[in-house]
Design a binder for these strands. Structure first.
Length: 242
DNA sequence: TAGGCCATCTGGTCCT
DNA sequence: AGGACCAGATGGCCTA
């Protein structure tokens, strides 16, 4: 291999790495969108990727059964369908959201308990329940709009509404997620005016002051100067956007 | 400290 | 040739 060929290979690899990162960010965004339409949405206990997919699968099954008339969305059976194959923590989260008590063998986290009783929640709203003695939200929420959506479908009014009416509690939730986001990596440290809405910090990540600044201000996309070429200290800041 | 989860890099494969 | 997709490897972070 000549030196020029090695250089070309390296440049190609760097570009491929950037594309791969971008692709995975898009995948994560899609997953994040999926999380937001799950019936149980906790800010203190973010669902893992695999648990999100499992819960989504169960949710579809549970709603299908409910639509066929065999299952009340407020029944324990509905929750049990939701929880099939889920880990204990996720099961407890779902149980906590539905206020049906923890699953056998595990306790419900205080901050995820006492949120919303779907049967009592105002229809069509996302309701947070603040438990006395606990700090203010974020708590997990049970989005009763999903159940209203189901009720509307069962009531035969579903087809009379456009998808855009989901926000009012009826219709199919539109996918309005962002397109594949750009890489949020800066090579020059110059913040953009617009914050990047695409990559909230992960639940377990405590951003450094530099990271916080990056997250709040947003940074430019520099595919031309790929990640691999950054100084080590800049490499260490990219995870804030994952 | 071990295990879970995650982001990233990398090489392989397939397709255009 | 180059891009998309995939899976394995690796290392970091967090929690029990």
């Amino acid at each position: 291999m000549t030196k020029a060929r090695v250089e070309r290979f390296r440049a190609r690899r760097i570009k491929a790495n950037a594309r791969e990162r971008s692709r995975m960010h898009g995948l994560n965004d899609a997953l994040e969108n999926l999380r937001t339409i799950m019936p149980c949405h906790s800010k203190t206990q973010k669902l893992s990727k695999i648990e999100t997919l499992r819960l989504a699968r169960n949710y579809i099954c549970a709603l299908s059964e409910a639509l066929e008339g065999g299952l009340s969305t407020e029944s324990r059976a509905f929750m049990e369908t939701l929880c099939k194959g889920l880990s204990q923590p996720t099961t407890n989260l779902v149980a906590g959201c539905l206020q049906l008590g923890p699953a056998p063998g595990g306790g419900t986290r205080p901050e995820d308990r006492h949120r919303v009783q779907p049967a009592h929640a105002p229809l069509g709203g996302v309701v947070s329940y603040s438990s006395p003695g606990l700090p203010s939200p974020p708590y997990g929420t049970f989005d009763s709009a999903h159940l209203l959506h189901l009720r509307a479908m069962k009531g035969g009014v579903y087809e009379n509404h456009s998808p855009n009416e989901y926000n009012s509690g009826v219709g199919t939730p539109p996918y309005d997620g962002p397109p594949t986001p750009p890489l949020s990596i800066s090579t020059n440290g110059v913040p953009k005016q617009e914050p990047s809405p695409h990559y909230p910090p992960p639940h377990h990540y405590s951003p450094s002051p530099v990271d916080q600044d990056m997250y709040q201000t947003g940074y430019d996309v520099q595919l031309e100067a790929p990640y691999d070429t950054y100084p080590e200290e800049q490499k260490n800041t990219h995870r804030v956007f994952t």
